[in-house]
Design a protein around this nucleic acid. Structure first.
Lengths: 347, 347
DNA sequence: CCGAATGTTGGAAGCGCTTCCAATGAGAGG
DNA sequence: CCTCTCATTGGAAGCGCTTCCAACATTCGG
């Protein structure tokens, strides 16, 4: 079909050195004369040689493969923008660092979710796993992955995870605080909060931040009512309707992510409410969803692509041994309140 | 870190046969006594053995890796729901068939897009590539992939691709026809069509279908004005505004995908128009976007997950040689008009 | 009952790469 | 001038698997 691909031996022959030396050059090893190094690179170019990653993995005992575990209910909500953005950031960094990335959507409530995650270790021989919430705070899962010989990096760990592996995320508490303060400053006094699933600790911190903002403004804890959603658009619709149908409904709905805020928006529209005239609604994440809906959502921007990228970088460091014994490190990335059209002064 | 993983030799020893025999059993080869076969499987279970895909690839000369090329402008519109749905379907089938999948977003207007695509062949050693529009109709790209020894499957080829490789998609012409007829039956007589990028042939067929529906209803070609978008939300906003601001604006906007329809919705809202009271808007694809916006979009459902799955299946057949010499086959999947809240009788 | 055909098994040679270790050459120190 | 280092290079042994081919066992037709 096609001419056989050149191998490292072809390069060795062409540049008149031993295979070992070529390998050294390819991997940036030390102890090769500059002249030889150049000669080898030249041969590589001339032959259009590419290392065979399979062979390299086999020989080196390193698969250079990372897995990204995405919590998702496949049917209900296929990969959301949230997941896509993380994946994209991770993918890019993998490309740059010469790693492979396998994205794996795993339903968070599947009884065999643990097995599904561990399978990437045993079957795909991944060297590292990126865990997103709520998996990011599953201490025993992290332990299991380690037992299989894998490294772990966490996206937005909220609690346990924080001390168990490298992590990356924003300060969710501050994010929740900031968006709440935005609403308080607009004069709102009756709030509704639509939370995410149990176990998604970083999202719960957003609520903590909201409560702190309330306290700082001298508002009672009773000024906010809480409904539990599950991050899906549909749950946003349902919980928002419940709250909005009440006699003294909140004037501001704070949602733990954009999808639920979009659902809340739908419910408000369906009830004939004017947004933001009668009710303000906020999201969280600043995914494209927040721009697509009408009115566009005021939300908290989370640098998802950077987070995916940072997670890969952390993993790559551990895998290569560069940061072998360094203590777990959580890198906190900046967040930002983005004000769009879904919030306005309280009626 | 962890106990060394068992190898095929461990299984061979444990079941008292030669490595060759174990390999045969593992790969479902012929000529093994039932009794031996069982003995081997038992040893596999006992040792919790998993084949090492890297070693298998190297020895077999088959990487069992497929690539999914997604056209996307990374910055403007990170992986949309469209891409995610395809990826999910493909991923599942790969898992089932024992293939690896690498998703690769490639900007459709990057000058080095061809190189970026071909890189999955040379660097990742993929055996097959799934091309989505507009790459799906790039005859010379298909040829290049073949030259590198890869197989090709196409998602929604519209023209050239149809006769160059296996393909899967819906009947886009009929889809365009059906959604147009829906609008015509509602009494609309002035239409606006927001198209996709040049070269996205399957989307152009949607327009052909629209024109046919017009003709069948005895309406003049002049009853529809066309604006060129690029499938992004933003382009939907812009093109819709232009059309809606005119003195005799269309009463129905037909968009070539959901994202642009969402943009059109935004523009209509911004102009203070009532939807669907004053203007009806339709999308195409039936991605989650169409449910998230308000009012939810009437659109044409495209079974994206099934399409991703079918593409992988086609590729797997070619790779394994099962369908080596079969003629290229286009499988047409059913589409369906989904009526939601964004369409109503013409004012 | 015999040779041929067919079914079943094992031996061994790689696939393309990394890496341990030995070998070589060349300055440095005495 | 002669060891002793250390930088540089090459030889060779695998990594875990597939697969070609030879060896042996079994079956069948005549």
């Amino acid at each position: 079909m096609t001419a056989k691909k050149p191998t490292i031996d072809d390069v060795a022959r062409q540049s008149a050195v031993a295979r070992t030396t070529v390998s050294r050059v390819l991997n940036g090893g030390p102890n090769v004369r500059e002249e030889v190094r150049e000669r080898v690179w030249e041969a590589v170019r001339a032959l259009n040689y590419r290392v065979n990653p399979q062979a390299r993995s086999l020989a080196g005992g390193q698969s250079r493969t990372l897995a990204l575990i995405l919590a998702s209910d496949l049917e209900a909500q296929p990969n959301s923008f949230y997941a896509s953005a993380l994946e994209l950031g991770a993918l890019r960094e993998c490309l740059a660092l010469g790693f492979q990335l396998m994205a794996r959507p795993v339903p968070q409530d599947a009884p065999d979710r643990r097995r599904r995650v561990l399978e990437v270790m045993s079957v795909q021989r991944c060297q590292g796993v990126i865990l997103t919430p709520p998996f990011a705070d599953d201490a025993s899962l992290i332990e299991d992955i380690r037992r299989e010989g894998g490294h772990v990096a966490l996206i937005s760990p909220g609690g346990a995870g924080r001390n168990l592996a490298d992590g990356v995320g924003i300060d969710d508490e501050a994010g929740g605080h900031d968006i709440a303060r935005h609403l308080i400053q607009l004069g709102h006094r009756r709030f509704g909060f639509i939370s995410g699933i149990v176990g998604h600790l970083s999202a719960e911190q957003r609520f903590d931040g909201l409560m702190r903002a309330l306290g700082e403004a001298g508002l009672a804890a009773e000024s906010v009512q809480v409904a539990r959603g599950d991050f899906t658009f549909r749950s946003g619709i349902e919980q928002a309707r419940r709250m909005l149908e009440q006699s003294s409904a909140p004037t501001a709905l704070i949602c733990a992510n954009d999808d639920m805020a979009a659902g809340a928006l739908s419910s408000a529209h369906a009830l004939g409410l004017d947004i933001p005239g009668q009710v303000s609604i906020t999201g969280f994440d600043d995914t494209p969803v927040s721009e697509i809906v009408w009115p566009p959502l005021s939300t908290v921007h989370q640098p998802l692509k950077d987070m995916g990228q940072a997670a890969v970088r952390a993993l790559a460091g551990r895998v290569s041994g560069a940061s072998r014994d360094a203590p777990w490190r959580f890198s906190s990335l900046p967040h930002q309140v983005v004000v769009r059209g879904s919030t306005r002064a309280a009626p």
